[in-house]
Amino acid sequence: MNGFALGAEQEEWCGRLRALSAARLRPLADKGEPGRVNRPLLAELGELGLLERVFDAGALELCLLRESLAYGCTEAETALALQGLGAHPVLRSGTEEQRQRWLPPVRAGRAVAAFALSEPGAGSDAAALALAAEAERPRGGSGTGFGTGSGRGWRLSGEKCWISNAPEADFYTVFARTGEAPGAKGVTAFLVPADRPGLTGEPLDMLSPHPIGKLTFDGVPVGPGDLLGEPGRGFAVAMATLNLFRPSVGAFAVGMARAALDATLAHTARRSAFGGVLGDLQAVAHRVAEMATRTEAARLLVYAAAGAYDAGAPDVPRRSAMAKLLATETAQYVVDHAVQLHGAVALQRGHLLEHLYREVRAPRIYEGASEVQRTIIARELYR
């Protein structure tokens, strides 16, 4: 890839992914229950080797993968992305034992991962999270009796909310306050299996069709063997994950925008109106041109951010924030105008655009709302 276009092999691969998502993944998604983890779909993603690529790919390849799947099957794209988001901290910061235990079944689509950061009082301001990890001294110096390793353990008490894949995940990457310092410096990351005593959850009925839930921690035991990284360094674990996945959230948005744009081109080219077709009307043609231009700009910014991440550039936080901001806001614009140009047919349950209209709203909020992205961009510019 140069600064302006993908190479021929990349374009061919993306084309195959788009066709694959429509032919192999869309039927499985249609059989799934909205708001529930679709384990057959995950297993197929594993069988096709696509989950493997989430962990082995660079940021650009991850973006191309998410964009291409989103074009043909948003449910498959989201299932794949949530596996990466939940398990990437294990790949990056986990022990060898944790990686051996959890990553093979995640890659195969047999185990479901989740990233548990947000709380009822700490969404965009992740450093304000309140889930408490209270230190518990080992008895007689013989360990905590839970987790693995030696030394003290903790008890987790509090709530997490709006957690994708909850409460059906098999394990959670959980961020809790251990209190080494105020704010972000007192946060620690833990790997918490779903069957840990005291951990319960319930699903939430949300606008988006993918599973989202609430988790309650009632003295959930975690030990040194459950740590992801060092105590008090959990916020760095979270941010490292988000810096990788924010551009690819933009890629998800670009995939939806491109699907909406192509549907609009096809519709306006054949829909009879006022003695011709809709596309003959200047107002319609200019709107479609604007949709296409914004989509292309967002696509290029996403690729640039991913390229910067892969190159180890120092300005990744700014580029990632810009890519997510522009792409998600653009996708909202494009899908909304696609619905408008289609008219009432696009409001029917089951129509592609009705589906995209529900899907496109959430990415402007999760993994840092648009307002947070603007704050990050401004902070980096003035640094």
Rank of each mutant, 00 (worst) to 15 (best):
R101L: 10
R101D: 01
L103G: 08
P105V: 09
P105R: 13
R107E: 07
R107S: 05
A108W: 07
A108F: 02
G109E: 00
G109K: 06
R110L: 06
R110N: 05
A114D: 02
A116C: 15
E119H: 07
G121F: 09
G123D: 13
G123H: 11
S124D: 11
D125I: 11
A126F: 09
L129N: 14
A132R: 14
A133W: 01
E134P: 02
R137G: 01
P138E: 15
R139P: 01
R139L: 12
S142G: 12
S142L: 15
T144S: 14
F146G: 00
T148H: 15
G149F: 09
G151I: 06
G153P: 04
W154R: 05
W154N: 04
R155I: 06
R155P: 10
S157V: 13
E159M: 15
K160I: 02
C161K: 15
C161H: 14
W162L: 13
W162T: 05
W162E: 06
W162A: 14
W162G: 03
W162S: 09
I163L: 07
I163Y: 04
S164H: 00
N165R: 09
N165H: 09
A166M: 12
A166F: 13
P167H: 10
P167E: 03
P167M: 10
P167C: 10
A169C: 12
D170G: 08
F171R: 04
A176Y: 04
